[in-house]
Design a protein around this nucleic acid. Structure first.
Lengths: 234, 234
DNA sequence: TGACTTTTAGAAAATTTTCTGAAAGTCAGC
DNA sequence: GCTGACTTTCAGAAAATTTTCTAAAAGTCA
């Protein structure tokens, strides 16, 4: 995998240092700028894979920068993660409606930052390969539309909630691999979320109720006692 | 699973007690020290799996301790979770190139503490196993799937319980090496049991029943009378 | 060979883990 | 603010595993 380049935009230098340091540790190239103008300038001239954008910026603010990115043909598809200082709902909603791919409320943890950047980049690369590669998983009458988010059992559409879908998708994408409840919680539930591991059980149960023929002998999601769950391996 | 050792560093004794009590309940060994000097000293001399480090410390402060950890070859990879007292301290820490693996703002919930420690330790062990890049051990018709947790004998899947699997895996990973019952108990069961226990024997017996052809002449797990057990060596 | 130690064996008891149904809590949309 | 869908928590039941127990077999050494 070639190194991805992240553009970080913030007027506070110490935040830029934080971002740069931690993302470079993760194998990204990081360019930092302190103003919206500089950001737009760089975006037009350099190959940037993702942008971390502070909402509060002098002169052109973050939302305006985002708006301009989205209305410039050449760079409109670059994923943008907004950084918001205040964590009130207004900022969040406004940010998302402006076309941001994700947002992080300050103060944020390093883990959260890394995870969200990774997630956003992954989504993009998935989008690129979707046209060529399969966008659904199909096995033994079960179809999982990765793009359409639709699950079908023997051709019959089945309603899935968000968590159920993500859980099923993750397991089905890695058949045979056992995921512990802890890992599932971290991967599907938020990085910050501290929850009960029984939560996973309940969601698994809901999924099973919807897709399994025989509850006592599930053919898709198997329980691996003492370890966790896994999807069937053919 | 082998017991992990956590080093907790804080100048407030009651915080140390809190950390110690709650993490020991979770099955960790906890060493507590009140100064950065003592922490660095311990890190060089003891096997520490993770560090909980208060930012505010007399003399050498937490950030300096962290810096020294990261710049000391032998201990630079030990995960460190910073504890920050005030939320503005938290903000400040976030802006620095600390290299911490995670942060917890005081006052923290016990649950959060436990979850983060667990998560940090898991990430480290994942990193370790990734480097091996091996998904299964295979020898003489016996396959041990490390990810799928499936054991196959001549292609036929065999059900293994948690302890059985871990025991078999440990032995098979180190063929020819003799493990005493005490060592096995510590590595897999993680307790220092004083006295006699036939627990290991019973589990070995269960494994043999499942994978050995000829009970009286085991080809995989050999008994080393007076010492313990070992996996076949080719 | 005989006495002693160690390992194996089967089965019962204890513990742990998972499943289940129901209730409580959250959140977005009206 | 209310409603309904979804998510999470809870507690008891069920299932499976782990540990203990007792007895017997096998190995060791003088």
């Amino acid at each position: 995998m070639e190194k991805k380049t992240i553009l970080a935009v913030d007027d506070e230098v110490h935040i830029l240092e934080l971002l740069k340091y931690n993302l470079e540790t993760n194998g990204y190239t990081v360019i930092t700028v302190e103003t919206g103008e500089a950001a737009l300038d760089l975006l037009s001239n350099e190959k940037i894979d993702a942008v971390l954008l502070d909402v509060m910026l002098p002169q052109i603010d973050g939302l305006e920068v985002l708006r301009r990115i989205r209305s410039t043909e050449k760079i409109k598809k670059i994923p943008v993660i907004l950084l918001t200082a205040k964590s009130d709902e207004f900022d969040k909603v406004l940010g998302l409606e402006t076309g941001a791919d994700d947002y992080i409320a300050k103060p944020f943890s390093i883990r959260e930052l890394q995870a969200r950047v990774k997630a956003v980049l992954r989504r993009v690369s998935e989008d690129e390969t979707v046209q060529i590669e399969q966008n659904f998983i199909s096995t033994h009458g079960l179809e999982i539309g990765l793009e359409s988010k639709i699950v079908k059992k023997d051709g019959v559409p089945i309603e899935m909630s968000l968590k159920e879908f993500e859980l099923l998708k993750l397991l089905a994408e890695n058949p045979g691999k056992v995921y512990s409840r802890d890992v599932l919680l971290e991967k599907i539930w938020s990085y910050e979320y501290i929850g009960e591991t029984r939560t996973v059980d309940v969601h698994i149960r809901h999924i099973r109720k919807k897709i399994e023929q025989d509850d006592s002998n599930p053919m898709f999601i198997k329980t691996v006692r003492g370890f966790g769950y896994k999807f069937r391996e053919d």
